[in-house]
Design a protein around this nucleic acid. Structure first.
Lengths: 235, 235
DNA sequence: TGAGGAATTTTTGTATACCTTTTTTCGAGA
DNA sequence: TCTCGAAAAAAGGTATACAAAAATTCCTCA
């Protein structure tokens, strides 16, 4: 899965539309921190880089704007959105409220197959963490972690809730790391919390599940002190 | 329904972009029930009707799709989204959670000017209700009511929360009426509830404000019995 | 040398043209 | 007459062309 020349950022399904290609490509640039807050998003430049015309680029930028990752104003250059500490806190508060609710619902609805999937995902995250250090570990972790949360969101069987969680409350990893505790501290606790959430879901105990998810998310609430260990390499 | 040649649906600000025009026009068609669930949204037809090219129509449809009012699939005609009873319930549940949270935050943040504005809005709704019956009353009421809730959402000072409430949890009035109690019953209670919310905000009591807003929204939770009085005129 | 501002360039907004896919039409064969 | 399927029509997806606005350049004048 870790091939190097996937020139369309994300999933490589048979024939992807141009706007999907553009959307995933640009979103990837932002979420991975390849483009940072304030960077200019020029339609022509992106079109050339991605190899489609401006039309799908514009659609993709509009979607990202609706999701809050890009700031667009009429006749003004689009820029990558800036996330202050307050923004990060706001996002995590809302995630806690909504994902807590989702987890509560999931507790009485989730299938055995999805429970198994969650267990597999968590086991994968933990073994990868043991084998590689947290350095190499990171990209893989983010993907698995995202799926862990996505499975729970889907199990809540509330399509609008799922959509909001997937598209309106994202925070670029680079920003999150800036405001969060050092990765290795955070990650160890995350594993324990994930296991607790899983236990609560298996017990089909909505209140416990909700509380465990809330604890998980509130423990990640960004702080002013931020990360003390991890400073991004480039200037 | 009153005037006949308002060719741009909503607000008529100085120079509106073509996509704004298209967006408000189509959104208005859906929310007022002029276009109903399942109706086809043909790009050419809308373009001709609104007087712009397909490009801004497509942008508008994409926005409405993201908001859940329109269903788009690749290479498939867009249609006005269908709202089942379950959808309506889901929307009100999520509104209750999020708008309750917003009201709680608003209680400790809202300005005196906004409190006054809320009082004025509520007084307007009530006097209009006395003067006109609930028949004529309706269009005006929806606008004032929407602003009442919007003022509170804004006072929460959580831009993402405000955006979600404004754009992801809408229900066309025609659908709401189908699943809700008769209008005159509902409206009388709404006035009392609005006054209670206002009192709680004035008292700057977050818990009370949140509970009052929750009571308001849960009292509107759509039911299978639905409206017994109001059946739409046309076949 | 620096500030103001007009001309140029760049960039975004919209319209149109063209291509691909879907939908419909309509005719052949059972 | 019904069904299947190919041809035609219609509709959406993308590229390009042109218009409007903003950003930049560069000249003028203090």
């Amino acid at each position: 899965m870790t091939n190097e020349t996937t020139r369309d950022g994300a999933k490589d399904a048979a024939t992807q539309s141009a706007v999907e290609t553009a959307y995933h490509h640009i979103r990837h640039l932002i979420l991975t921190g390849e483009m940072r807050s304030g960077d200019k998003l020029l339609e022509n430049q992106l079109a050339a880089a991605i190899g489609v015309s401006r039309t799908p680029i514009r659609e993709a930028l509009n979607r990202l704007n609706a999701e809050g990752l890009v700031v667009l104003e009429r006749y003004r250059r689009g820029i990558v959105a800036d996330f202050s500490l307050d923004d990060a806190v706001e996002i995590f508060r809302l995630r806690a409220i909504l994902e807590g609710h989702a987890t509560s619902r999931a507790a009485s609805r989730i299938s055995e197959a999805d429970l198994q999937r969650l267990q597999d995902l968590e086991r994968l995250m933990e073994t990868q963490f043991e084998e590689l250090g947290w350095n190499e570990h990171l990209e893989g972790f983010d993907k698995l972690n995202a799926e862990f949360h996505a499975v729970i969101a889907a199990a809540a069987e509330s399509p609008r809730l799922e959509k909001i969680l997937a598209s309106s409350l994202e925070l670029p990893a680079s920003i999150f790391n800036r405001y969060s505790e050092p990765v290795e501290v955070r990650t160890r606790r995350t594993h324990a919390q994930h296991r607790e959430i899983l236990s609560a879901l298996k017990a089909r105990n909505p209140e416990w599940a909700q509380a465990a998810m809330n604890a998980h998310l509130f423990s990640l609430l960004p702080t002013a002190s931020g990360s003390l260990a991890h400073e991004d390499g480039a200037k």
